[in-house]
Design a protein around this nucleic acid. Sequence first.
RNA 1: GGCCCCGUCGUCUAGCGGUUAGGAUCCAUGGUUUUCAUCCAUGUUACAGGAGUUCAAUUCUCCUCGGGGUCACCA
Length: 462
Amino acid sequence: MVVTRFAPSPTGYLHIGGLRTALFSYLWAKKNNGKFVLRIEDTDKARNSEEATQAILNAFEWLGLEADGEITYQSKREDIYKKYIQQLLDEGKAYKCYMSKKELDVLREEQMANKERTKYNGKYRDFCGTPPEDVNPVIRIKAPLSGKIVVHDGVKGDIVFQAEDILDDFIIARADGSPTYNFVVAIDDALMGINEVIRGDDHLSNTPKQIVVYEALGFDIPKFYHVPMIHNAQGKKLSKRDGATDVMAYKEMGYLPQALLNFLVRLGWSHGDQEIFSMNEMKELFDPKDINKSASIYNTEKLDWLNSHYIKNTPNDELVELLTNFGLILSSHDKKEILLDALKERAKTLKELAELIHEIITAPDAYDAKAVKKAFKGNAIEVLEEFANKLDEAKELHLPSEYHHIMQEVVDNMEIGFGKIGNPLRVALLGKMSGPGLDVVMSVIGKDETILRITNAIAADL
RNA sequence: GGCCCCGUCGUCUAGCGGUUAGGAUCCAUGGUUUUCAUCCAUGUUACAGGAGUUCAAUUCUCCUCGGGGUCACCA
């Protein structure tokens, strides 16, 4: 069974890059009827927060991603790590190193001065003397000093590292006894049965170290897929400093979960020429072998397009529900179907949709000067008056077609083009020259409000 | 700097030795529309460079250049 995981460290909100690797992991597990588990990597007590964990969970919930089983917290697994540290110590695969931080710094500086690679010099690797009493030792693992380590990566292929180039006896437990990242990741992944690791390729250079741990402990090495970074416009790794990388900010901006997911799944992955993927299609079609090797630049143009696509295809009753998040209560509006049918074609975001609707259901508080100049020429006032009279005479008006019919009558009677009535009427009703069909607008606001807005416009002496 | 990864339209990408190098988005133009948007049609734009290998390279190899990642008692 395929078991994948998402293993964020809770130091802030969930960002776009993390979400994408989470999505990939989720999809790959689902495709294989496997499991997708969540592990919170909260060993850095200074930088972690519970709010951050909650933020990640909130984002998952919004997007409909669900982790299987209990959430694992590394902070609760210290005993497990201690046990394995002791085991390695007992087996002679790890040892205590009494080199102080200061001493290490000096070593590093020397190496840098000599333009050598900075690495631990192995001072305590085979130490048998009396250790200094004033230092709490760290625990280092005995890493291979030579030979090669091969990472079999599902995205990039086999990557060969020379041990002497990259390895040293790295620290697996700090002076205070707490275990370090590369050590616990390997243990947790192994113990949790994770056999397919999908993660950002910024972890690629950590992988050999983790392999050292796997081998020291005799665990099976999982299949790795290192997915390329998402870059910002400057071509650098996307970070929390880049703004608008908080997943939940997209909810506030009026993006639909499906649009964001669809956008993200196509960033670095493709299935032929297909652009639109439902969640079911993603689950069915996603395969990490189709992840491409190169980094991609984060650019939301396509997200906007996808979002408008999904808004157009969202049923009106769902839109009514979603729009309540943007301060719009439409549930009791008798023309909401007509309104939404006309306006959901025009909005890129829910927020925008809410604004467009608001612009129609409330009377204009100002008239755009340019629009007035263009529309109120010749006998515009006369046309409007005539139209208002016709409306007044009419009994019951509901459908856009009924309003359209009256407009047509006026146009025919006065022998004018449609623009002669359309332009000034549009300005009178909406205060500007753009917007949806006037018949729709009038149908939505009703006969009385239409007449009112017309008389107001006439009275404003445009 | 060492090590590692990457390099097709502005952007997201297809391509897996022989293609008029395809799609999407963006942009532009035209059509539809009373306007704007939608929608439809059309168009501009790409294989980083140089050597090989081959009858044939975007595709394979090497070099150069360019970009990125990583080098902690952070994760």
